[in-house]
Design a protein around this nucleic acid. Structure first.
Lengths: 193, 193
DNA sequence: CTCATCCTTGACAAGGATGTCAAGTTTGAC
DNA sequence: GTCAAACTTGACATCCTTGTCAAGGATGAG
């Protein structure tokens, strides 16, 4: 078996994403990736160079899909509904699986100190674009727009989502996270005021 | 040089805290601790057993001081001022040093999946007690109390602080974090409404 | 059909990290 | 002063991870 690539790149990257999601960039080993994908370690080195290159491919795919889904969740309803949809999405995203796999971006961000520039830039990229999406969603909402500047508020929302990811790691379940998010939205948009 | 302990335990734990704070429980090695404290690896094993035992001591000391400081920051002024004081405190705490060292609790929480039960419990303990402190501070504030249930709000505040810690790791500086916190407080307590 | 190219595989070298231990030294109790 | 107890030190065994590579096999262009 040789001569031409024996594995499906898409599939390998998809499986690698799962591994990174569960273990983190730093804790996942090439051994782990080889075992999960069924591709020999040597072949992975040959095909991609090193672990980080594989991670970047996997992360880029993940980030693209994530932002896309987020954008559509942020497009429906008034300001409160948009945020609710969005929180619903990311909470399900991070509490999915058993045990829940958490938030890949947040986990990666926390490894910032030991990560390369390329990795750090990806994290910043995702957070930045997410902030823009949220800002736009708030600004263009049909009603229920809060009095505070949409850009500043967007950053607060992004920050809060990062907090949800940490709380999930600390042991909070889907239900508790959703309740926290609901309280956050209520306090922010304040329909009860 | 032997016979009786040659090092100051307090000092070793203090130095170990610095190391863990910068590198994280998982990334700090016994080698690192030995080098930073000036105590041989063998002696550390002899005195404490393993890395985690050292970490737990260091973390307990840290958590105690942190919660104490937080409580006093949360005791001054009205609801908005209390939160502002508190955010000021934790933002300085996590952006201190160069490069900034981040938030130890958050970093530790993110390693939850590979940490022992004892470590996870410490993290949950800190977050739980912090939540109680904040709830009490909001409930007992002389004025400016928001309409929303203080306990729920407290959890939202804790979650937001975790988010700030992540944003710090993602590259946000003290100024940006403070601005986000100010926006958060304004949106929550809403003096401008 | 031939052969250069590309892929796979298993092995190897090197560099950490953990945890253990025997040997040596100092202390303090008696 | 003696001696058991406690601490320090350096070394050792083990395991894991990374990255490289030579050897061998399959492919497809010409």
């Amino acid at each position: 078996m040789a001569g031409v690539r024996q594995f499906d790149e898409q599939e390998v990257i998809a499986v690698a994403l799962e591994v990174f999601w569960r273990k983190g960039l730093h804790d996942a080993t090439m051994q782990d990736l080889a075992a999960a994908t069924g591709v020999q370690r040597g072949s992975l080195y040959h095909a991609y160079g090193d672990k980080e290159a594989i991670f970047l491919r996997a992360f880029d795919g993940y980030a693209g899909k994530f932002l896309e889904t987020a954008a559509s969740a942020l497009a429906q309803g008034d300001a409160a509904a948009r945020l609710q949809n969005f929180f619903e999405l990311i909470i399900v995203n991070m509490t999915d699986g058993s045990p829940p796999r958490g938030c890949l971006t947040t986990r990666t961000a926390l490894d910032a100190a030991i990560s390369s520039t390329a990795v750090r830039q990806r994290v910043q990229g995702v957070l930045g674009r997410l902030e823009q999406l949220i800002g736009k969603a708030i600004r263009s909402a049909p009603k229920g727009r809060p009095a505070i500047d949409a850009n500043r508020l967007a950053r607060v929302v992004v920050t809060f989502t990062r907090g949800l990811a940490v709380m999930e790691r600390a042991g909070y379940g889907r239900k508790q996270l959703k309740e926290a998010a609901a309280t956050f939205v209520a306090a922010l948009i304040g329909d009860a005021r």
